[in-house]
Amino acid sequence: MKKRRERIDRGIKARSEDVYALSSWREMLYLAGPRLLPAAAFLLLPLFLGAYWQKVMISVAVFALLAISWDMLAQTGMISLGQALFFGMGAYVSGILNFYFGMPPWIAIPIATVLGGALCTLILTPVLRLRGIYFSMVTLIIPLMLVRIIEATKIFGGTEGLSGMTPLPSTLTEIYLVTGVLLGVLFGLRRLMETDYGLVLKGIRDNDRSVTNAGIDIFWFKTQALFISSTIGAFAGALMTHVYMFVGMPVFALDYSILPMAAAVVGGSGTLAGAALGAVILVPLSEALRGIGGLRIVMYGLFLVVFTVAVPEGLFDYIQRRYHQMERWVEIDQ
């Protein structure tokens, strides 16, 4: 007698699918739990953490934003190997506004977010005319070239960078600013990707020919997706400039490209929540593994390979499945 595994939806999933969900607390909790729990954790946790882990939490949120930004692009069919470009652009713009023009952070950060995003979009727009890997190639080399240029021409402080930025009033302000934006971006973008607009973006990834044949300008939609994504990355960079009170060449370093990508791939790309989950796992993990130094990056590299090849759906998908469905063994007739 052979058996196979069968997956069926949990009863509560079916019960809470429609307006009936409002009939009992249990169903409402089932629906709201997965959304409220992480939100509550992000909001309450900072109050109980020590100074060191508060900084780690900022880092988690920043990398989560970069990972979400990566995933947003990936869902539109663009694989970025250079999230550092978005991050660094935001960081430098905010730093320059603060350093040279004396703008306070609460003006510099929003301007840097939009301006940084727009600059990245402008640089990368020509590549959007091409399919597939061209985008990856260009995003990989541009931040690395920018580093060399800053190093060689000594603009914006050169290798020393710019320091002495105005900090934000307190660590808690920093945390609540970044987690607030993170939650907003996460739930907002998840909603957006579920709309018909999001369907068009995903359609471009799966079959650009079919989307074009529907009379839709894929170039224009890709530009929009790129702008949304690079703005998110630029915000993360702009914020960090004021957290570190410093901006310099390291903002274009490969770390800011690799960790977000690893987070999105480990958490599972295509869900945005998976990207955030990946950051929540990987950033504290890499803090804990500080002792092994450079081996961490080797580990991220291996994560990228193993998850892409063997577990392409990622962790979030697995958790989601276990939450909504149960598995059982059933006999199959021969």
Partner: peptide, 26 residues
């Protein structure tokens, strides 16, 4: 507007969701 000889719909989407993209057209 044209149809393609080799059809390649969005396989994971329900058939009616495949119609959304043309209906989104300007």
């Amino acid at each position: 507007s044209r149809t393609f000889q080799m059809v390649r719909p969005f396989y994971h989407l329900p058939a009616y969701k495949n119609m959304i993209i043309p209906l989104y057209s300007p």
